[in-house]
């Protein structure tokens, strides 16, 4: 009698546990259980991109732990995108006894010293989203340059179809000096080289959609034909400004980056033509897999995996909700 109740409870517990991880890719790599401590350092705490990455990683960790491993992951992210704070988090991770650091670097070189210290202590570095120039054990990131090209080509095609062959394209960027946005811009810009389009000077919104909106308003008033946003807040704000302009009868073509509820709504509303959706969840999961593989003795060899972008526009937005 007791045994049956116990078994029943166990079954209930397992179902509950499994349903809690229902949204993750539970396909763990089968093998020996491992035990280690991981520090996850994203660029900030607020951007939905990082939150997704973190949640996917946590789900993966839970899946492994359920199968017998003992993975302890701590999410250490600064309040805002700030190089000095990120370095502090790295030092905290070292002090806290982490054996693996999964990090999205604000900037290619600023964290190198701190990361080198970690490597000297035997800690392995796994890059997600944005690597540093220092060599790490593995990198799981979006190829931002390629994504930028993809975005540029999409916009160019729309402009061609609409018969627009020249004009200024406004750029609403996030923060100066962030490599991922830099690459997204460069990729985009390469598409328009040699055409009659001129790219306006990059305006920095610091990822704040309110600022982005005001900047976009001003660019529109200055007569741009299209706007490109390089991250969630920049795209979001620019799309809102485009919607505003539409009420006055102006048509502005807008493409951007990053999946968020707001951007989805903007695509549905028509003011945002398309956004590049990254796969932060894939980054998080792959990184945890990499930790487990390394713990089991595999040499990651500095592998670089493109976690991919999808172009999300009105035709396929429903799939992404």
């Amino acid at each position: 009698m007791k045994k049956r109740i116990f078994a029943g409870l166990l079954a209930v517990a397992m179902t509950v546990a499994m349903s809690m991880t229902a949204f993750a890719d539970e396909a763990i790599i089968e093998g020996d259980p491992v035990e280690t401590k991981i520090g996850l350092i994203t660029m900030d705490q607020m951007d939905v991109h990082w939150v997704r990455l973190k949640e996917a990683a946590e789900a993966k960790v839970a899946a492994y732990n359920e199968a017998g491993s003992k993975l302890d992951m701590v999410w250490m992210a600064p309040e805002t995108k700030d190089n000095a704070q990120q370095i502090q988090k790295i030092e905290a991770a070292i002090a806290d006894g982490c054996k693996y650091i999964i990090i999205a670097c604000n900037d290619a070189t600023s964290c190198n010293n701190a990361l080198q210290e970690a490597i000297d202590e035997g800690i392995k570095i796994i890059y997600v989203d944005a690597p540093a120039s220092l060599e790490g054990s593995a990198t799981y990131a979006t190829d931002n340059y390629a994504g930028g090209v993809q975005a540029g080509e999409y916009l160019k095609k729309v402009l061609d179809d609409a018969g627009v062959t020249e004009g200024t394209i406004g750029i609403v960027d996030a923060q100066a000096g962030v490599d991922s946005c830099e690459n997204r811009y460069q990729g985009f810009a390469s598409v328009f080289e040699g055409t009659d389009f001129v790219l306006g000077e990059r305006q920095y919104s610091d990822g704040d959609n309110a600022k982005a909106q005001e900047l976009a308003n001003t660019l529109i008033a200055n007569g741009v034909v299209a706007i490109y946003g390089t991250n969630d807040g920049a795209t979001n704000g620019s799309a809102a400004a485009v919607a505003d302009a539409a009420r006055d009868g102006d048509t502005i073509y807008c493409v951007g980056w990053d999946k968020s509820d707001s951007n989805i709504a903007h695509v549905e509303g028509g003011e945002l033509l398309a956004f590049m959706a990254q796969n932060p969840n894939v980054m998080g999961e792959d990184a945890i897999d990499a930790v487990v593989r390394a713990e089991r003795g595999e040499d990651l060899g500095g592998e670089v995996v493109d976690t991919g972008v999808s172009t999300v526009d009105a035709s396929n937005v429903a799939d992404f909700k």
Binding site: M46, G207, D208, N209, A210, Q213, G233, N236, G237, A240, D261, S262, A265
Partner: peptide, 15 residues
């Protein structure tokens, strides 16, 4: 006003 402009709430609003 900020929320109406963006159509959403941003945690960074008002910095």
């Amino acid at each position: 006003v900020t929320m109406a402009a963006a159509g959403m709430g941003s945690m960074q609003a008002g910095l």
